[in-house]
Design a protein around this nucleic acid. Sequence first.
DNA 1: TAGATTGTTAATCGATTAACAATC
DNA 2: TAGATTGTTAATCGATTAACAATC
Lengths: 210, 210
Amino acid sequence: MIEEVVPDIVISRLPRYLQTLNEMAKEGLHTISSQTLSERLGTTAAQIRKDLSFFGGFGKQGMGYSVYNLIEQLQRILNLDRIWQVVVVGAGDLGRALTRYQGFAIRGIEIVTMFDVDPKVVGTRVGSIMVCHADEMESEIQKRGVKIAILTLPAEAAQVTADRLVNVGVKAILNYTPVTLRLPESVHVQQVDPVLHLQHLMYYLGGNQA
Amino acid sequence: MIEEVVPDIVISRLPRYLQTLNEMAKEGLHTISSQTLSERLGTTAAQIRKDLSFFGGFGKQGMGYSVYNLIEQLQRILNLDRIWQVVVVGAGDLGRALTRYQGFAIRGIEIVTMFDVDPKVVGTRVGSIMVCHADEMESEIQKRGVKIAILTLPAEAAQVTADRLVNVGVKAILNYTPVTLRLPESVHVQQVDPVLHLQHLMYYLGGNQA
DNA sequence: TAGATTGTTAATCGATTAACAATC
DNA sequence: TAGATTGTTAATCGATTAACAATC
């Protein structure tokens, strides 16, 4: 099976294509050209066509792309044509905010359990989700076969917890702690640190704050 | 004034260098080589030296870099040698979580006000921060000269609100809504959408969820 | 058919890596 | 001095853009 590796930077753009296509479908558009889509996204038409061509030819010359078909194809490519179960580790403000986030369910993302060590929150509910004690983390994740975890716990516990998650089969981690996790290459991590994002922005604010 | 433009991808790495250097300082390290730093970060020594060389020569041949000096230099480059005032727009779960986040203050990020339109939350406090009505947004931001805003409001209100912020001088937006904002080039935006991050991760989870 | 737009190849651009003289 | 490590240049690698034949 010869399979060309698709660059990660291409993969990173596909969810945004999908997002915009979904908007367009809502607006009642049935067909779009790479040009139209690129204007909405702020990219170039050539880049969109090149990105899609890694996976096949989804358009028709002279016509463009079927919005519905392209949505389906992107969902298939990104493995979104199923429901993914996700656990949230850390039931603080951020973990609870994410667990209650309405945007997950309609995108096939199901938060199944939260974990924490604080006896004051263990046993409580966040929306319809039960907060379990972190001692049950391994058994619960293995029982359900969960592959994705969101980390929203204190920095000190991040690496140890990530190691435990990986030990029981977690393959993807969305890391909201300010810790650069050291994990096997086979585990995929995305880090979201508001401080890093803000510092990046601050570079461009140059000299003077009024 | 001839000033070479430093690639954004270089800028995006500097906050992580700084973060790691701060850890190293805490551990009592005084001097490091690009090699040591790169191992901690999971990058290459050549990349670190190249990135830093855009801004000057901060090391000593044969010796490496002074941890303290490099921290100072990076803080200066990123404009972190001052306190930045930030407003949070949207006092939902996520906005409140971010406002209460302890990691901001120690990094010179000061949340000064939150805004919302819901009469049930306007007038309440989140930690020591008052939630003001969005009607006061323009006057408050102008009064304080705030340049940075964090958007944590419903998708429907995102574009309109961003336009209003830009109108009164906001130059940088950390956007937690799933909306691709259309703003003047002079305004810098970082988007953080958990759905996009998770979908990116799902690509790599391939065929089978147990 | 004529016009439009794809998919792909080739050209360009930019970023990363390697290598090494300079020098602490 | 000998060893280590920087800062920088040149080489390589990869990503983006441009161009156009294919074709709907």
